[in-house]
Computed example of a mutant assay.
Amino acid sequence: MDADIAELKKEVSLLRKELSRVSDEAEVRKVHFKYGYYLDKCLYNEVVDMYADHPDAYVEFLGSRYRGKAGIKRLYNGRFQSTFVKGRNGPVHGFLLDHIMMQDIVDVDPSGTHAWCRMRALMQAGTHKSVRETHPRGHVQWWEGGLYENEYLKENGVWKLFRLVADQGELRPLAHKDVSRGSLGPDEIIEQKMLWPDTRVVPFHYPHPVTGKRVSDDDLRAPNYGQDVAEAEAPLSLALPEGQKRQGEGNTWNSEGSVRVLAELVENP
């Protein structure tokens, strides 16, 4: 009888851990989907509130890094809000900005406080002909497609965006202005702009689910057709700013006798 009770307690403990993992994965997905819905309607105050207050939080966007809550506010409440909706919080008539989120892969650290998500986004955007003369974009439509490789943090029991890395592979000619100057600029310029026609692979936060290995660096590069890979641009990186670490990296899940390997990240083993 004692042995049976001990076995039941062990099974309950495993099931509790597995339920916590599944629940946390679902919550992380909801966080990002809610972020997308707020962003669709230019609710930038709500977007900023989705981010962790941790000083290591940041957004990487178009070769730029916006660090900490102050930098994140400067991007959304400054650059985006002033450009798209003239400083208001919410949509303006005739401006479309729909983010379709899909193919989400979420991994949660066993501690239940840190998570990673790789997700694809397809954005349809544009302005209606009726606002041609009043909106700074004039009359224009475009598509954007790209990947997120994000990290999430549970602060005071609530899941929040922590580090957002956006691969903006735009499906239109890109008129990217230098935003490194002025009060709305980023905290730092980084080399990785990750824009079409650059087809290098954004590194995966997870290892291969069957082999347990990560994809080799050379296989993440994108040489010209027939060109030796050694002549191609260096692989993309998920490297952190100097002095930052990835919480929970390399930890494993033990569930019902099997091991779930998490976050074998390329840059910070």
Rank of each mutant, 00 (worst) to 15 (best):
P197A: 05
G212V: 07
Y44W: 04
S23N: 09
G169T: 01
K245Y: 01
L43E: 08
T127H: 06
G157C: 13
R67G: 15
Y38V: 02
L14G: 06
R200H: 07
D219T: 05
E242S: 14
V215I: 13
E25H: 04
L171C: 06
S23I: 03
D219S: 12
K193N: 05
K10I: 05
A175S: 10
K41Q: 04
N251F: 01
L19C: 12
L19N: 13
E188V: 11
T134M: 11
D187R: 05
A234I: 01
Y66E: 04
Q244D: 11
D178W: 03
D217E: 15
E188I: 10
N268R: 09
K86H: 05
L14V: 06
F33W: 07
D98V: 00
P235C: 12
T211P: 15
F33P: 03
W143E: 06
G257D: 07
G146S: 10
K34H: 07
L265D: 07
E27N: 13
R137E: 01
G63C: 12
E18I: 02
G250L: 08
S111D: 15
K34C: 06
N77P: 10
L262S: 13
R16M: 11
E46L: 10
G87H: 03
V140P: 00
S130W: 02
P173E: 12
G257R: 07
D24W: 06
G71L: 14
G138W: 05
S111C: 14
A232N: 09
G71R: 08
Y37F: 02
E60V: 02
P209L: 09
S82P: 04
I105C: 09
W196G: 07
D107F: 12
V165S: 14
S111G: 15
Y66T: 01
E7R: 07
T127K: 07
V108T: 11
H135T: 01
L14H: 03
S216E: 12
Y206D: 07
S183R: 03
G145P: 03
T83Q: 12
L238A: 15
N89E: 10
A115F: 14
E264P: 12
K34E: 11
V31Y: 08
N89T: 00
S23A: 11
C117H: 01
G68M: 10
N268V: 03
W143H: 12
G248M: 09
S23C: 13
E256W: 09
D167K: 05
E149D: 06
Y76M: 15
D4Q: 08
Y148V: 02
F80H: 01
V108N: 13
V131A: 05
E249A: 15
G212L: 15
V47P: 11
Q141R: 03
S183F: 06
H176C: 08
K73L: 14
V85C: 14
Y76Q: 09
P173N: 11
Q244F: 08
L238H: 10
L240S: 02
A125V: 00
